[in-house]
């Protein structure tokens, strides 16, 4: 006989607790990964801008713009960096990586601004742009645009991996819990079936020889108790094995 009702709420509770754990862990994970990775990409972009700015000073003073462009091109190979431009102190574009031309929004922007700004450039996508002054700004400014889509993709991938791991653990945890509950429910089902048999045919001799009566746990004690009560009711003596239930 299967035990369904007794553990119904237990199973529901397990699902609820595990679900809550997964949900809260996922939310925390998404928030942490998103915040941390976004900050890291922004810092990396700022570092790249600073590196270019530091390397550009001498080149700019020599007006060696081909070398400057070559330098810029090399940093464009860094994953996620989609554009770089260098403006002079007067706002003239001295090197850049835009094709087929410099976008209007960038042409009209304040070139000496080095604070991070989010840009949406038509035909190119969404970017976070950071700047770094060259020689404290007197020689110009370097601007580096990081593709937000690439950053978002990286973050999604990192979050996806974590959520996947947590989900796998949830499924395994729930399955294990059900298995343990079933493990506990099985002897109870046998006990229930035994009790029903005792109620129907309590005087049968074979009911006093069941394996259930030999169990050294609560189920065994209960079985022996049920048999004892059943036989006592029928005016028969107690079997010696039932004494352990006293």
């Amino acid at each position: 006989m299967r035990i369904r009702r007794l553990f119904k709420w237990t199973r529901f509770g397990i699902f609820a607790v595990f679900g809550l754990i997964v949900l809260s862990t996922s939310i925390l994970c998404i928030y942490t990964v998103d915040t941390e990775l976004s900050a890291e990409y922004e810092v990396n972009t700022q570092n790249i801008a600073k590196t270019i700015a530091d390397s550009s000073a001498g080149i700019l003073l020599n007006q060696n713009l081909a070398t400057l462009q070559s330098l810029v091109d090399q940093f464009l190979e860094v994953q996620g960096i989609r554009y770089i431009y260098i403006t002079s102190e007067t706002g003239e574009f001295l090197a850049h990586t835009f094709v087929p031309g410099i976008p209007e929004e960038i042409l009209e922007s304040e070139h000496s601004n080095t604070a991070p700004v989010e840009r949406s450039l038509p035909g190119m996508g969404d970017f976070i742009e950071v700047g770094s002054p060259i020689l404290a700004g007197v020689a110009g400014t370097v601007h580096v645009g990081m593709d937000l889509d690439v950053v978002a993709l990286k973050i999604q991938r990192a979050i996806g991996q974590q959520v996947y791991l947590i989900s796998v653990m949830l499924v395994l945890g729930v399955l294990a819990s059900i298995w343990f509950v079933n493990l506990a429910a099985k002897p109870l089902g046998e006990l229930l079936a035994y009790a029903v048999e005792l109620a129907k045919d309590g005087e049968k001799d074979e009911l006093g020889e069941r394996e259930l009566l030999t169990r050294d746990d609560e189920v065994g004690h209960l079985a022996r108790l049920f048999l004892h009560v059943s036989r006592q009711g029928a005016g028969r003596g107690l079997p010696t094995s039932v004494s352990g239930t006293e």
Partner: peptide
Amino acid sequence: QIDAYGRSGWA
């Protein structure tokens, strides 16, 4: 050409 060659000529 958006590279060192193009920039050299541009300059």
